[in-house]
Simulated assay, not measured.
Amino acid sequence: MDDTHQEVTSLVGREVYSNNGVFVGEVEDLQLNISEETIEGLALGQLNEELFPEESRARKGVIVPYRWVRSVGDVILINDVVERVRDPDDEEEDEIVA
C-alpha cells in the first residue's frame, strides 16, 4: 500500500471544524474523481445540529467541497461553512419573511 492511499483512507473518521473552531461533522466517506485521482469532497455525518438542523433530524449527511479544506492534521479545518452551505434561495425566503 503506498503513502497516498494511506493518507486518503486516514481522512475517514476525522472530525471537521470551521476555521473559527466550530465543530461541523465527522468524515464518513470521500467523494473521489477517479479519472483525475483527486478528492472532490468530504461526506460528513454526525453533524453539528445547530449548523444542520434538518439534516441532523433526518440523519442525512452533507458533502463539503474539498476546495474548502484549509488544513489536515489530527482534525480537518475548513473555511467558514455556515454561509456557504445554506441554499441561496432559502436565504432570500428568510429575508422576505423577516
Rank of each mutant, 00 (worst) to 15 (best):
V22M: 07
R67I: 08
V75Y: 06
Q46D: 12
N20M: 10
E55H: 10
T38F: 04
I76S: 05
Q31W: 03
G73R: 05
E26Y: 02
E37F: 10
S71P: 07
M1C: 14
R86S: 06
K60L: 06
E15I: 05
A98S: 13
V27W: 04
L51T: 04
N48Q: 10
T9P: 00
Y17N: 14
E40H: 03
V62Y: 02
S71E: 09
D29P: 00
V64C: 01
V85Q: 08
R59N: 08
P65R: 02
S18F: 14
I39Y: 09
V22D: 07
V75P: 05
G13W: 05
S18D: 15
K60R: 14
E36V: 00
V64P: 00
Y17T: 06
Q6E: 14
Q46W: 00
R84H: 10
D29Y: 03
L30Y: 12
L32K: 12
A43S: 08
V27L: 05
E50G: 12
E93G: 01
V16R: 07
E36M: 05
D29C: 00
E37D: 13
E95Q: 11
I63P: 07
E54I: 02
E49K: 01
G61C: 04
G21R: 04
G73Y: 05
G73I: 03
Q46I: 01
E50L: 11
V81R: 11
A58S: 14
E49R: 01
V22R: 15
L42K: 06
D80P: 05
I63D: 09
V12L: 09
Q46G: 04
V62N: 04
Y17S: 13
S56L: 00
E93V: 15
R59I: 04
T4R: 15
G21S: 07
R86G: 03
R14Y: 04
E83Y: 00
P53F: 01
G25M: 04
L42Y: 08
